[in-house]
């Protein structure tokens, strides 16, 4: 018999994210997605150079100013959403898809297979992400596809570990024992109890993972390992603008802010959904 004291400290309301940030995050994310789908709705040609208006400060004509070739930074940021976000999404799809397969394989099959796989995940997950991606790029060469696969492989172990851990928890859950009492076969247990309960939280985790993928993608592009100029990728824009930082901060700082705003929005919404999800299941 346990008679627990209700836990009534500050933690309860601290963990609940306030509403306005969630609304703001949704708006930002909506804008970003629109920019991916239909950039010309907001912005003109990102490659149109104008040698007469080079490195101009933000103004009514050029909201985010112009860069060293006189290109409008705002137009480039809007069009950059497609590059940066689709790299992140593609990499996350690879990571989550393969992570689910390998995680389930480890969690559901023989113990020896689990041992080998999970040791592999552990070692890889602990290894610096950027270094893993760099190793892959060194072998496969630079380029957008290579960047996507590199980030996918580097973030895969994390997802695989989550899926495996969750699988083990669910497999041993008392409600699975009870399903045994109704003569459920192994396949039936996996299909009716294990898979739904393991995969339920995955979309939310993928959302938070997407934020991380976008961040790494921007970092590697900044290093010149992603889409090559003149592609308006956010990280690459920063890298180009870095040389003119002393006279034109906007050409590098504002594309960077686009990355930050997107990642924060993904994280805020992801955590919010995660909290709601956990609240519903505990």
């Amino acid at each position: 018999m346990t008679v627990a004291m209700p836990r009534l400290t500050a933690r309860r309301f601290a963990l609940r994210p306030p509403r306005p940030p969630i609304a703001a995050a949704t708006v930002v994310l909506g804008l970003a997605l629109t920019a991916v789908a239909w950039p010309s709705l907001f912005a003109a040609d990102p490659l149109a150079a104008d040698p007469l208006h080079v490195l101009e400060a933000p103004s009514a004509a050029h909201w985010f100013g112009t860069d060293q070739l006189g290109r409008d930074v705002f137009d480039r940021v809007v069009h950059g959403a497609r590059h940066s976000l689709s790299i992140g999404v593609a990499a996350t799809v690879i990571a989550v898809g393969a992570g689910i397969l390998l995680g389930l394989l480890a969690g559901l099959t023989h113990r020896a297979a689990d041992e080998v796989l999970s040791r592999g995940f552990d070692a890889l997950a602990a290894f610096p992400l950027v270094l893993l991606a760099l190793l892959f790029i060194a072998i496969a060469g630079t380029g957008t596809v290579s960047l996507i696969v590199a980030i996918g492989i580097a973030t895969l172990p994390h997802h695989a570990r989550v899926v495996r851990a969750q699988t083990l928890v669910v497999r041993q859950a008392p409600y699975v024992t009870h399903a045994v009492a109704f003569g459920a076969s192994r396949t039936r247990l996996v299909l009716r109890h294990v898979l739904p309960n393991v995969l339920g939280p995955i979309p939310v985790l993928a959302m938070i993972g997407l934020g991380e993928a976008v961040l790494i993608a921007a970092g590697l592009s900044f290093l010149g390992l992603g889409p090559q100029p003149p592609s308006p990728e956010w990280g690459a824009m920063l890298s180009e603008g870095r040389g003119y930082l002393h006279i034109a901060w906007w050409a590098s700082v504002l594309p960077g802010c686009a990355v930050t705003a997107t990642v924060i929005s993904l994280t805020v919404i992801g955590r919010h959904l995660q909290n709601r999800f956990e609240g519903r299941h505990q």
């Binding site: 008392p174 409600y175 024992t177 009870h178 045994v180 009492a181 003569g183 109890h193 309960n197 299941h281």
Partner: peptide, 26 residues
């Protein structure tokens, strides 16, 4: 093997201490 127990499984039931964890939360 479990396969041999399955036909009579429903004749033997279980009630546990913590009913919450004994139900699939979904």
């Amino acid at each position: 093997p479990e396969r041999a127990r399955r036909p009579i499984r429903r004749r033997l039931q279980l009630i546990a201490q913590d009913p919450l964890s004994a139900f699939d939360p979904r």
